[in-house]
Design a protein around this nucleic acid. Structure first.
Lengths: 214, 214
DNA sequence: CATAATGTGTTACTAGCGGTAACCCGAGTC
DNA sequence: GACTCGGGTTACCGCTAGTAACACATTATG
């Protein structure tokens, strides 16, 4: 039988794969999104073609790497979302979890968010770009699912939940990106401000006296 | 005096610059964000070094191109924001303006949003990336300014307005990006859903019966 | 035991990118 | 006529993603 042999090889391949991913992780953490295949191969102590045998192309490597971090982050977010507390507290916890993650490892974050899909190569249409739902989309869909599962939104709830999921994720992302660059306030303040926004303070705010209103 | 001569040259240079930008526009509209300097030069009927003499590097060309479209879009948004109507209507008009813009010219939109900053070149740290506030930031700042000018937000209003500005822009962007890819509903529906989100319907919604609440 | 096959790795290459140095040529000027 | 000078080109550099072809070890098989 070659099944045992195949599993043996499979295991070995998986181990190598994990080693390569860890090396890639280190390089990305050091060099950011511009990490080149050469650099990653060098860090792993091997040469490029091996990387390509394992991951197909840069998109494949990106996908594998992204899936890892994405899964980890999504798990954290789910935990925050599932904590036993008031809705507002949960929202704040989720926002804070996300912001803490991007604060702790900005290089990884930038790699995930700005996958440098420019791909100087001649193959742009091939399978790069479609590799794995680029984190933002996945987060949006996940959040949409949670919203749709737990909130009573009346008719058209599914569509509404999806719009909100992507919208909220986008809000979180853009604000986080800006905050990470300028650090204009503490994380807690940012969380509170965003939660206030989601709680309708924009609609509730009064016009400034003398102004034409907004 | 050489002032007349200089203005003469200046005018000529400006004309060329505009021609080049229009050529670049055409290429970007056709090829998307991967438009190469070679392709742009070819479209303009000239060769690369001229482009580099005019714009410094790819970042400079991007900046010039982006500034153009960004200014146009920002003007449209300001108009929508300044229309004489209720706040809710203004917000909806602004959202709709943005979404209509990205719907009308998705290639340009993708070029502006995902500048392909990967920049395979060896110069990543030089001045690329810092060129011009990448649209999202500019929109965020503009919106923040409008919010801060017109709304009475109490203490810390400036910070709050900036967080909201970037957050709302991010929401609009992410939802728009997703919508543009999947087209799950009409533009009007999307606008209404987003406005509802901003109006606090998330906080106001009831828990789904039987569920643990959100 | 020799030989074929198979996985694992390398070197050396292609094609295309952003960016630049060096040259080239026509138009004015002394 | 020599001379600068702005606008243009060719030919190149160093880098990238990706690949073809070759080399070595191990293992299965005659």
């Amino acid at each position: 039988m070659d099944t045992t042999q195949r599993t043996e090889q499979q295991r070995s391949a998986d181990r190598r794969r994990r080693e390569l991913l860890e090396a890639a992780d280190r390089v990305v953490l050091r060099d950011g999104p511009q990490a080149s295949m050469n650099a990653i191969a060098a860090e792993a102590g091997i040469t490029k073609p091996i990387l390509y045998r394992h991951f197909g192309d840069k998109g494949g490597l990106y996908a594998a790497l992204a899936t890892r971090h994405t899964d980890a982050l999504l798990n954290s977010l789910r935990d925050a979302l599932d904590a036993p507390a008031e809705r507002r507290e949960r929202v704040e916890a989720t926002l804070d979890t996300y912001l803490a993650a991007i604060e702790a490892r900005p290089q990884v974050y930038r790699f995930l968010m700005h996958p440098a899909e420019g791909s100087t190569g001649p193959d742009q249409g091939f399978d790069v770009g479609k590799h794995s739902a680029p984190l933002l989309r996945r987060m949006g869909e996940e959040l949409a699912q949670v919203i749709e599962e737990r909130l009573d939104l009346g008719p058209g709830s599914q569509q509404l939940a999806r719009v909100w999921g992507h919208g909220i994720v986008g809000m979180m992302h853009a604000a986080g990106d800006w905050w990470l660059g300028e650090r204009p306030c503490t994380r807690a303040e940012l969380v509170k401000s965003l939660a206030d926004l989601l709680w309708g303070r924009l609609a509730a705010a009064g016009d400034k006296v003398g102004g034409p209103g907004f």
